[in-house]
Amino acid sequence: MRSNDGALKEERLAFPFLVPALVVLCGISLYPLIQGITRMFYTYRALAQQTVFVGFQNVELLFQDPLFLRAFSNTLVWTITSVGMQFVLSYWLATMLNSRFLRFRRMFRGIALVPWALPPVVVSLMWRYIFLNGGPLNTILHSLGMAHPPNWLTDPHLALWTCIITNIWMGIPFVTVMILAGLQTINKDIVDAAAIDGASYIQTQVNIIVPSIKKVVLIILTLETIWTFNMFDIVFILTKGGPGNASLTLPLYAYENAFMYYQAGYGAAIGLLILLCLLVVVVFYIREVLR
């Protein structure tokens, strides 16, 4: 009885503090989510100029739509390679920035953070300029002796990879800082002791470093996967999904359907598929954070 009373009392105390957040959460998060999902049951008929209920038709259409399948496979490539490369490069950079033999450590760490603060739109147009046909990168390649440097933005085999490179660049600061913070929690004496006992580089990594930063690594990987899967700005600014649909990704395709072709229902169906993919990832994220 007593404990029950106590719990109720805490709820009465907590509730007033939670009201503003609950209002925002229900009104501007939960309701729009449900509202957005229900859009996929409707379609806009341009001739009749009305929106009609079509059940799961939009979802069924998805799997017969070659453009959707293209965008889906592009998004998988985009997410896996971006997150993978971001992690590898950031791990390398973080290890170096964590080395006690590095001078000017604070200055280097400050510089490494810069891309994090920049608006993704600015990052994208900056890299669009760099990748331009007569732009800086090709000027360098040309002076290095490459007679015909690639058309980074307009070659269908390269366009998606050009976007991926930009995304990797943009993500490095966040991942590096998080890994670095993880590395800094490791007691250097233990690493030294392992070295004295004759542990190899690989043994030290596998037995000491990786277990110590496992949690932060899992959080970074899940968060980056979610953010990258949802990323819209870079592809929109760099290639608009082109040439043709070579670099089309799901968020861009959903946007085009909803806001350029008046097919909000189809856009919502694409959104639902994104949500289903990301729910799998977010479960791992929540489990790690709450652990």
């Binding site: 509202q35 949802n230 919502a268 994104i274 949500l275």
Partner: peptide
């Protein structure tokens, strides 16, 4: 997903 939230 951004697209669902923006529609809602």
């Amino acid at each position: 997903p951004g697209i669902i939230m923006v529609l809602g």
